[in-house]
């Protein structure tokens, strides 16, 4: 599959279109969830959109902090240079910090916000995985996907993950009444972590860090967040009122 769509003289990244499409689905899922609870809708959406903007800006322009000498010697670099893992990490730290600060200032319970995030991220991940092919190891199973020639079929890892996400979403929706104490977020994290991790074992991994891939680190982190958070299941945090 090509990486870009060609529209006349313009090249538009396929991945970018999928990310925008997935974000739209995630946004509307969040709006629907917000309608069902008593909370300042505009405030939550503002915080979320601003944090995404901070993430994108830090990813793109974070190079100023990491390579100040290089950027100062050639300011044009700031336009040409693409973001990397370090600037993405910086973006996550800054946007997370911003979210916590805004929530604290406005008296919004953090656990409620985390629960709302799971309602937004599951549809996002579903759409993203449905349209982004990820090739696993070769398989003889009839639903294997090919790279063009039909000689070799590969596990459609993205579809497997999409199926897991649908199942997790159904489970989380059934538990909607518990929104507000962070349990939905913890459960979603744990289940996404387990399913994602299992799928990494049927797909080639690269760029290993201490013997495991960045994806596996990410899923292990999610699982750990879920496991540690669920230990606090009997938390006394107030639940949000449901209309």
């Amino acid at each position: 599959m090509d990486d870009v769509f060609k529209i006349g003289p313009f090249l538009i990244s396929y991945k970018l279109i999928i990310i925008v499409l997935s974000s739209i689905f995630g946004y509307f899922a969040l709006v629907i969830a917000l309608k069902k609870i008593e909370i300042d809708r505009r405030l939550i959406l503002d915080i979320l959109l601003s944090s995404i903007l901070i993430l994108i800006l830090a990813w793109k322009f974070g190079g100023i902090l990491f390579n100040p000498k290089q950027i100062l010697s050639n300011p044009l670099l700031i336009l040409f240079i693409t973001g990397n893992t370090a600037t993405l990490f910086l973006g996550f730290i800054l946007s997370t910090g911003y979210i916590f600060l805004k929530l604290y200032k406005n008296g919004v319970p953090i656990l409620l916000f985390l629960d709302l995030i799971s309602f937004s991220s599951l549809p996002f991940l579903l759409i993203y995985n449905l349209f982004t092919p990820m090739y696993g190891y070769p398989t003889r199973l009839p639903w294997g996907i090919s790279l063009g020639s039909d000689n070799v079929l590969y596990h459609p890892v993205n579809f497997y993950f999409a199926i897991f996400i649908i199942l997790i979403s159904v489970y989380i929706l059934r538990e909607f009444k518990t929104i507000g104490n962070g349990i939905l977020f913890m459960k979603a994290s744990l289940l996404l972590g387990i399913s994602g991790l299992v799928l990494t074992f049927i797909s080639p991994q690269s760029n290993m860090i201490m013997g495991i891939s960045p994806k596996q680190w990410g899923f292990a982190f999610l699982m750990t967040v879920g496991l540690v958070g669920l230990k606090k299941e009997n938390s006394t945090s107030p639940k949000a009122k449901i209309d």
Partner: peptide, 16 residues
């Protein structure tokens, strides 16, 4: 958190 993450790392490393 660290203990669980370390355990998971050990399991994933072995499977890899």
């Amino acid at each position: 958190f660290l203990v669980i993450l370390a355990l998971l790392w050990a399991i994933i490393f072995t499977i890899n």
